[in-house]
Structures are given as structure tokens and as C-alpha cells.
């Protein structure tokens, strides 16, 4: 699992392993490697390209296989913006994703600190129970949650979308593991300097768990952004719903409106694409650390 105390680890001299290969062979290997990567990159990017191209096609050209539409237009974007309140839905999704991310990190840090630093009755049992909740699919608890938010009078509100995600096993487990690997000497030193738990957590541990926190931020944000079932059950009006529901509204049993759907999808994926572009390294790290959720 994650170890984020690299800064405290003794420095290890870099070891280089000489490869007894000829310069020509190395060059060829490099070229082949680049070619494979270029093909893979095209393979990965093509669906995104196709989404954008389809969003520019008129309805009677949607099924054409040409790489560029004969009469590209932004009509599908205009239609999608008029058909559903995309801007409001994107705003809702952004708000819900941001709040869930912050709250889950906050509760995760508090719980992880308790599990990593303190011994208390049934601590291991509690930790195991939290770990087990990770195995329970959300669909199983969806109806009890629905009844609860209905009782609280929160149906068709953004608060109801956020409430069941206040704490998550993934955040607690990842952070607890990272904190357990944290050098005890540093914590003892902080304690000797008079720091209490609250200060130790926020001023000593949290700044040094930046990598793990960044990874978790990305994972939580993306999974909340892509959440579908819970908003589907909860939402009553498009204005109080999220973008994934909006995209689905272009798919009906009477046919899918591919052009507007792709236009809405392009708009919906922009924030996530920007997140990827800006935080490429952390995104890759986060998937390597925790697996693809």
C-alpha cells in the first residue's frame, strides 16, 4: 500500500545498470517503443476524437464513418444547451464532487489518525468493519438511504446527493495505511515540543501525506463526478440533478439523439479532461496506488 514518508527515508545512491547493447539496436528498440506508444495513444484518444466529431455532425450524418463531417456545426451544442439545463447540471456536479471530496478527506483523515495512532477497545474490529463496508455495493444501501433522506425532507436536493458520501472506507483505509508508515520519531518529537493530536495531524502528518491526499482527491472527485445510480433515484427535476443524468436524458427507447448526447458528453468531460491534463502524474500515481475503482 502507500508509503508517503519518502522524505524521511535514508537516501539511496542511484544504481544504473549498464545494458550491453549496441547503439543501433538501442535506437531501433526506442523507435519500436515509440511506435507502440504512438499507436496506443491514438487508440486511447480516438474515442475522445470521435465523441467531438460526432457532436459536430448533423442528425443525418451521425452514422457516417468519415473522419470529419461534411458540414460541421455547433447546432448540437445549442440544442443540448436548450434541451437540458447543462450549465446548472455541471455546476451541481462540480459542487457535489468538490464537497464530497473535501468532506471525505476530512473524515478520512480524522478516522485514519485515530486508527493509526491510538489503541482503543474494539479498534481492530471497527477497522475491519469499516474495511468490510467497502465490499457492500451502494445499490444494497440505496433504498435505506433513500428512505432516510425522504424522512429528512431532502429529496430532490443537492444535500441528499452529498449526505451518504460523508465518509468512505477507501479514504480511511488509504490514509490509515499511509499514517502507519509515518516515522514515529517525528511524531514523538512533535509531541515533545508540546503539540497535541489536532496540531500533529494538521501540521505534521497532513503536509507530509500530500501524495496520498492528492491521489485520494482525484479518485474521490472522479468517482463522485461519474456517480449515476444515486442521483438517478433521487433527482426529480433536471435543475437539481447532475450531468450524468442529463446525458442519459438523450437516450430513450424511441432512439438516442447521438449528436446532442455527444455534445453534452464533451461538455461534461471537459472538467475531468482538464483535471487529467493538469494533474497527469498524480492521476497515474493514484491509480497505481489504489487500483482503478
Amino acid at each position: 500500500m502507500t508509503i508517503d514518508a519518502a522524505a524521511f527515508a535514508p537516501s539511496i545512491p542511484a544504481i544504473s545498470i549498464a545494458r550491453p547493447t549496441k547503439r543501433g539496436a538501442t535506437g531501433l528498440n526506442k523507435s519500436v517503443g515509440h511506435l507502440v506508444m504512438a499507436v496506443l495513444a491514438i487508440f486511447c484518444l480516438f474515442p475522445v476524437y470521435w465523441m467531438i466529431v460526432t457532436s459536430l455532425r448533423p442528425a443525418n450524418e451521425v452514422f457516417d464513418t468519415s473522419l470529419w463531417p461534411t458540414a460541421a456545426s455547433l447546432d448540437n451544442y445549442v440544442y443540448a444547451l436548450n434541451a437540458i439545463p447543462i450549465i446548472e447540471m455541471l455546476g451541481n456536479t462540480l459542487l457535489v464532487s468538490a464537497v464530497v471530496t473535501v468532506v471525505q478527506l476530512f473524515t478520512g483523515l480524522l478516522a485514519a489518525y485515530a486508527f493509526a495512532r491510538w489503541r482503543f477497545p474494539f479498534d481492530k474490529l471497527t477497522y475491519t468493519l469499516i474495511a468490510l463496508t467497502w465490499l457492500v455495493p451502494f445499490q444494497v444501501v440505496m433504498i435505506p438511504n433513500y428512505l432516510l433522506v425522504a424522512d429528512l425532507g431532502l429529496l430532490d436536493s443537492l444535500a441528499a446527493l452529498i449526505l451518504p458520501h460523508f465518509a468512505a472506507a477507501l479514504a480511511i483505509l488509504m490514509l490509515a495505511q499511509a499514517m502507519r508508515s509515518f516515522p514515529r520519531e517525528v511524531l514523538e518529537a512533535a509531541r515533545m515540543d508540546g503539540a497535541k493530536s489536532w496540531r500533529i495531524l494538521w501540521e505534521v502528518i497532513a503536509p507530509n501525506l500530500r501524495g496520498t491526499i492528492a491521489s485520494l482527491t482525484i479518485l474521490i472527485f472522479i468517482s463522485t463526478w461519474n456517480e449515476y445510480f444515486w442521483p438517478l433515484l433521487l433527482s426529480r427535476t433536471p435543475e437539481n440533478s447532475v450531468i450524468q443524468i442529463g446525458i442519459q436524458m438523450f437516450m430513450t427507447s424511441e432512439g438516442t439523439q447521438w449528436g446532442p448526447l455527444m455534445a453534452a458528453s464533451t461538455m461534461a468531460s471537459l472538467p475531468i479532461l482538464l483535471l487529467y491534463v493538469g494533474l497527469q502524474r498524480q492521476v497515474i500515481q493514484s491509480f497505481m496506488k489504489s487500483g482503478i475503482r
Binding site: 442528425a59 443525418n60 451521425v62 452514422f63 427507447s253 424511441e254 432512439g255 438516442t256
Partner: peptide, 16 residues
Amino acid sequence: QTSAIQGFLVKGSQGK
């Protein structure tokens, strides 16, 4: 198929 998809098919076939 159901007659309800007529609109979808008309859009796709227009001019084609």
C-alpha cells in the same frame, strides 16, 4: 419496431 421511433428514423434518413 415500434412506430414511436419514427422520428429518429426520419432524422437519420433525411436526404439519404
